[in-house]
Simulated assay, not measured.
Amino acid sequence: MTPVSMLLNILWILIGGAWMAAGWLIAAVIMAITIVGLPWARAAFNIAVYTLLPFGSRAVNRYDVTGMEDIGTGPLGVIGNIIWFVLAGWWLALGHLLTALALAITIIGIPFAWAHLKLAGIALWPIGKVIVPA
């Protein structure tokens, strides 16, 4: 991780990243408790870590990394993402959007608001994503 990424991640945690990472973690725990939700729990946990430290890494489609389709990148992944959207995706995306709006008021907060907007998109459709270094 570069020094700039490290500084941005520290600032990110202090001004809103920690509470959204906690939201992702809560979603992962709730999904894991149901046992049926374990595939969503794994995706939510991975994105919780990404939400805690978003600078210096990015989320990409797993197919783009591996070059092969799997359960998460095929038709079952689409169904899983639809179920995710109904159960947890919309409220996580809403949290990211509200935080982005609050941060966009200041000039210093604009890069952080942009990161929240990217995370809001991931919140709507997380299955089949993988986090890679930028």
Score class of each variant (00 low, 15 high):
residue 77 G to D: 13
residue 8 L to C: 01
residue 4 V to K: 08
residue 110 I to G: 13
residue 110 I to E: 10
residue 90 W to E: 07
residue 25 L to Y: 01
residue 96 H to V: 06
residue 11 L to N: 05
residue 112 F to N: 01
residue 27 A to H: 09
residue 92 L to M: 08
residue 90 W to H: 06
residue 47 I to Y: 02
residue 120 A to E: 03
residue 56 G to H: 04
residue 1 M to V: 10
residue 92 L to K: 02
residue 35 I to G: 06
residue 21 A to V: 00
residue 94 L to Y: 08
residue 133 P to Q: 11
residue 9 N to A: 03
residue 89 G to T: 00
residue 48 A to H: 01
residue 106 T to W: 05
residue 45 F to D: 06
residue 109 G to Q: 03
residue 41 A to K: 02
residue 118 K to Q: 13
residue 2 T to W: 04
residue 54 P to I: 04
residue 74 G to S: 15
residue 121 G to K: 12
residue 83 I to C: 15
residue 72 G to P: 09
residue 96 H to F: 14
residue 112 F to I: 04
residue 132 V to R: 07
residue 1 M to T: 08
residue 120 A to W: 02
residue 15 I to Q: 03
residue 80 G to M: 15
residue 99 T to K: 04
residue 39 P to A: 06
residue 23 G to T: 00
residue 13 I to K: 10
residue 109 G to F: 01
residue 47 I to V: 14
residue 86 V to P: 08
residue 114 W to V: 06
residue 116 H to Y: 01
residue 11 L to K: 03
residue 76 L to Y: 03
residue 112 F to V: 05
residue 121 G to S: 07
residue 115 A to P: 01
residue 102 A to F: 07
residue 74 G to D: 09
residue 53 L to C: 11
residue 115 A to W: 01
residue 128 G to N: 09
residue 101 L to T: 04
residue 103 L to T: 00
residue 21 A to R: 00
residue 15 I to K: 01
residue 95 G to Q: 11
residue 127 I to M: 14
residue 33 I to S: 12
residue 17 G to R: 00
residue 43 A to F: 10
residue 76 L to R: 03
residue 126 P to L: 10
residue 101 L to Y: 01
residue 15 I to D: 02
residue 69 E to Y: 05
residue 29 V to A: 15
residue 40 W to L: 15
residue 75 P to E: 06
residue 80 G to T: 14
residue 72 G to V: 12
residue 91 W to M: 10
residue 85 F to K: 03
residue 107 I to L: 10
residue 110 I to T: 11
residue 17 G to C: 02
residue 117 L to C: 13
residue 12 W to H: 01
residue 94 L to C: 09
residue 105 I to A: 14
residue 90 W to S: 04
residue 78 V to L: 12
residue 38 L to M: 12
residue 61 N to C: 13
residue 58 R to S: 14
residue 125 W to P: 07
residue 119 L to M: 07
residue 94 L to G: 03
residue 89 G to I: 00
residue 39 P to W: 07
residue 129 K to C: 15
residue 55 F to W: 03
residue 73 T to H: 09
residue 19 W to M: 00
